[in-house]
């Protein structure tokens, strides 16, 4: 199969680079324009920088933070040439990302040594939960792990079918109670299935829901509780999937889902389509929850470990 060939890190890097290409050309094209004909960083350049960061979806608060830091640096070091600005910007972003975040993952290690390890996947409608689950399952499966997918989205038309097709593609187990079944029951039984069938990991899908729907968020809390009842210490990971094309609402989503289910990791999808990977910077700054995965394409292998350094490097590559 053609996607299995795409296993080399070089390909991966190319995917990320390609995905971020638009971000790069936008961000740095603009910076170059902003500083053209100027030899030192003045207020005007900083103003322009602010607008650039904002229009990359970084978010107001984080943008102000980055600008403040750069302002301080400029004040301290007096003569910062615009040439140094790119470097400065990179430093500050990496630092900002490093502040709240845990160490980046090295590979697709399971979030817990527990067996089975239970992962609950949540998010609003249409962010790519099911696709992310398929890609993640593929990674675990190719490490030789025994994986089961639990069809907890019993609401949206044909959601169960969609996950089933993914399980067939990946070649892993699949647990479902059909459409309209109680999602909490599906979650509970998926865990039981994983225990009985000696699975290493169970990934449970949930129906997309807007974070403002209180009843649906309560349902999600219930799903989480029933997973805990099914197995002590579970879920070992609650993965919130965010769509990178989302603007500032991503922050609200992160907040509400965290409140409802104790989100422990984020996956950022559709980074190949959006010009603004900036939302990752903003979210990483505002939430203590680390970004673990990024989706950079529709292929089964196009899920990557989020790496701060690589992310920022890739953003800046060829610009310095």
């Amino acid at each position: 199969m053609s996607f299995f060939k795409k296993f080399f890190s070089k390909d991966k890097k190319e995917d990320l680079d390609k995905g971020l290409e638009k971000t790069k050309s936008n961000l740095f094209g603009k910076i170059t324009k902003a500083v053209a004909g100027k030899s030192t960083v003045d207020d005007e350049v900083l103003d322009e920088l602010e607008s650039i960061l904002i229009s990359s979806d970084v978010g107001l608060d984080t943008t102000v933070k980055i600008i403040d830091r750069i302002e301080q640096r400029v004040r301290r070091d007096k003569y910062v040439t615009t040439k140094e600005l790119n470097e400065l910007l990179r430093d500050e972003i990496v630092q900002l990302l490093a502040e709240h975040n845990t160490v980046d993952l090295e590979d697709y290690t399971l979030p817990s040594a527990a067996k089975p390890c239970i992962i609950l996947v949540v998010g609003v409608n249409g962010v790519g939960k099911t696709t992310t689950i398929g890609k993640l399952a593929h990674q675990y499966k190719s490490q030789g792990k025994k994986v089961v997918l639990g069809a907890g989205d019993t609401f949206r038309a044909a959601a169960v079918d969609q996950l089933k097709i993914w399980s067939e593609r990946v070649g892993c187990d699949f647990y479902s109670k059909g459409m309209q079944a109680d999602p909490a029951a599906v979650a509970f039984e998926t865990v039981q299935y994983a225990i009985q069938h000696n699975c290493d990991v169970a990934i449970i899908d949930t129906a997309g829901r807007l974070h403002t729907k209180i009843n649906l968020m309560n349902e999600l809390s219930k799903i989480r509780r029933s997973v805990s009842k099914s197995l002590d210490g579970a879920p070992h990971e609650v993965l919130l999937v965010l769509d990178a094309t989302t603007g500032q609402n991503a922050f609200e989503q992160a907040k509400h889902f965290t409140d409802a289910t104790d989100v422990s990791a984020l996956a950022l999808t559709k980074l190949d389509g959006t010009a603004k990977g900036g939302v990752a910077i903003g979210i990483s700054d505002q939430f203590k929850v680390p970004i673990k995965y990024i989706g950079v394409g529709e292929g089964i292998t196009q899920l990557q470990i989020f790496n701060k350094r690589a992310f920022v490097e890739s953003l800046f590559e060829g610009e310095l």
């Binding site: 229009s55 979806d57 609003v124 094309t245 989302t246 603007g247 991503a250 603004k276 900036g278 939302v279």
Partner: peptide, 12 residues
């Protein structure tokens, strides 16, 4: 188009 779309809405 998703109403939650950010700055990229223009390009898309």
């Amino acid at each position: 188009v998703d109403a939650m779309t950010g700055q990229d809405a223009v390009n898309t």
